[in-house]
Design a binder for these strands. Structure first.
Lengths: 355, 355
DNA sequence: GCCCTTGGTGTTAGCGGTAACATCGAAACA
DNA sequence: TGTTTCGATGTTACCGCTAACACCAAGGGC
């Protein structure tokens, strides 16, 4: 009895210098230093600023490094330098290809500069965005890229309180020096579609929208204004549901719309997948497109040019937005904070055969 | 003259205790400790193991924490605990929705456990994969999820040399205790399509494939064997190109195929986007599907059920693969290494109207 | 020959946390 | 009432790297 407590006190206190490697089993800079017969600092220099080290030592370090399979710990470096080489990217959803395209642009641009995008998914809600941002900030990103401008007040405060540069995408800042922004005018894009349908001589022009995030709403607003301007707006022809968009939903909503308003002769669907579903429904019901019903989509997703007939839609510069956002962020992270504050990348109305 | 060098030596050495916050401007644990009148360690405990701290102190710490806007540095914690709460996920491409679906499954599963997936893009080449893996390993992930089993020998060595658990997805390990694997048999899936076309009585069955990664090849192999078994294999009906798949490519390749072999009566397209392109081409050329030509795709991507006619294809459990891979990894990261080593999630032949 | 550069390298002191052990008062026990 | 036990808290020593400065020999200007 008596000695049951663990008392490792006498477990050979190890002569201060560990024999090799660390707790993780991986070689550390100190190991390489010993192996190369130099100090840790010299190893660090040999790796990060080779010009500061003699040819000969550089070679010895490289050799030892290779031999030990040394991988410098970014974590330790990040802690010591206060630069994580990491960029937080928050998007509403992973399965919406719109954001993936933006992400791809960001990734391609950041990667060559050694920055690692770290993705957070916000599920389209500002509250979740705030939560995710908070946890991500804990790992000290060097930059932040957010989707949209609809953040909670607390998020805005948070963003202002950190020294980290922030870029907002997919939308345009109302006043340009409030935030770094890269996108296009969702309102104008919706307006262009509305006007296009009007110009095609359509009189009963409807709207179908899903996934009612602020950007979708702005598109709808633009469309509405175009119709109002033409004196052809009928609020009852708007069908807006919160469900996330899909081909199936497009077909279903069109059916509903036609049941209530068989006289519509044109339709703006706020996303291409809805439009494809509508197109499918028309084919099944032998509704002539664009003869009896004109259809316009949004985003110019992959298959839009390959429907029958090819879909009129709005091409959005998703990839370019990602690239430009990353460039802006890179500039800001390097202290070059002078560039334009709000970049409008525009959009293109792709008039094809459904209108 | 003389004093031009910067010699801040006498810049008031600050009384050892900095007044507040650190170099980054953010509050540190020490700041909170001071504010709450306790030691840093107690703050750490109050945050990570509240039960180890008295109710009263916990409240004081929470208060101080809130007041100072304290965000604990994950970096420092990671360095101290040797756990980064990070998982490296390597996928061939961001723009291929197949991998995004897997990724989404991973993300959803890992997130609630506090793990942060960090994505690397390998561009479909094992060499780039090795490179990306190397750099990612530098930030000490707690786990790794890779796509496929085709890694460079050096990658395999690397994986073996680290203590970090690794899961491979989208494929099945030849022998189950070699690696943790979650996927389905690409070969069998291809075989099922081949047999299906044979069973439909087709005699001149062709193949169109793009993006020739190992998984695509295995599908093709399976398909080929099915035809060989039926005595209907004609190598000249295989059209395989390295280009990445797209709707446009599908249309183009079908045209080429028909030009060379107008007598084909069935076609397996190794990805749904190719199949959609082929379908489009058939519609344009008034080729009856499935009357004159049967078409089968692969993956059951979003629009497959909504083509005209609806596309026969193979539904692959992409999301489930992500979820299961994450579960396996979580188990391994927590030391529960006992689960099944190779998980076959199967596939489903979706017979629709194009065959 | 003296002093100042300069380039290469080492030393020290953290970055912001946490593991492990030490300490201490009060409750529990004998 | 002395001792044990235990819960709550503090101290110390790092994790692995790098900024900043110290040091030193060789070269250059006068």
């Amino acid at each position: 009895m008596g000695g049951l407590k663990t008392q490792h006190r006498n477990a050979l206190p190890v002569p201060t210098r560990k024999p090799r490697s660390s707790r993780t089993g991986r070689a550390t800079m100190a190991d390489v230093a010993t192996a190369a017969g130099v100090s840790a600092m010299t190893v660090s220099r040999a790796l990060n600023r080779p010009d500061k080290v003699s040819e000969e030592v550089r070679a010895r370090v490289a050799e030892a490094s290779r031999r030990l399979g040394f991988v410098p710990s970014r974590l330790a470096a990040a802690l010591a330098t206060a630069r994580s080489m990491t960029v937080t990217v928050l998007i509403p959803s992973l399965t919406n290809s719109v954001f993936i395209d933006v992400l791809a642009g960001i990734q391609e641009t950041l990667s060559p500069h050694g920055y690692q995008p770290v993705i957070g998914v916000t599920g389209y809600t500002p509250e979740e965005e705030e939560r995710v941002l908070r946890t991500q900030l804990a790992s000290g990103p060097d930059g932040v890229i957010l989707t949209g401008l609809d953040h909670t007040p607390a998020t805005w405060d948070l963003l202002r309180s950190i020294p980290t540069p922030v870029v907002h995408t997919m939308d345009l800042a109302p006043d340009a020096d409030d935030a770094l922004t890269v996108g296009f005018s969702q309102f104008d894009a919706g307006h262009a579609v509305g006007r296009h349908l009007v110009e095609r001589g359509r009189r009963r022009i409807g709207l179908i929208a899903g996934q009612l995030d602020p950007r979708t709403r702005q598109r709808c607003d633009g469309w509405r204004q175009a119709l109002v301007e033409a004196g052809r707006h009928d609020p009852s022809l708007e069908l807006m549901v919160p469900d996330s968009t899909s081909v199936a939903l497009g077909a279903e909503l069109l059916e509903r719309m036609l049941a209530a308003h068989p006289d519509i002769d044109a339709l703006f669907l706020c996303n291409d997948d809805l439009a494809q579903g509508a197109l499918f429904h028309c084919a099944r019901r032998s509704i002539a497109v664009p003869g009896r019903l004109a259809l316009a989509g949004f985003n110019d997703l992959g298959g839009a040019a390959w429907t029958l007939p090819p879909l009129t839609t709005v091409a959005t510069p998703r990839h370019a937005i990602g690239v430009e956002a990353a460039h802006l962020l890179l500039a800001a992270m390097n202290g070059r904070d002078d560039g334009p504050r709000s970049v409008d990348l525009g959009f293109r109305l792709m008039v094809r055969e459904t209108t």
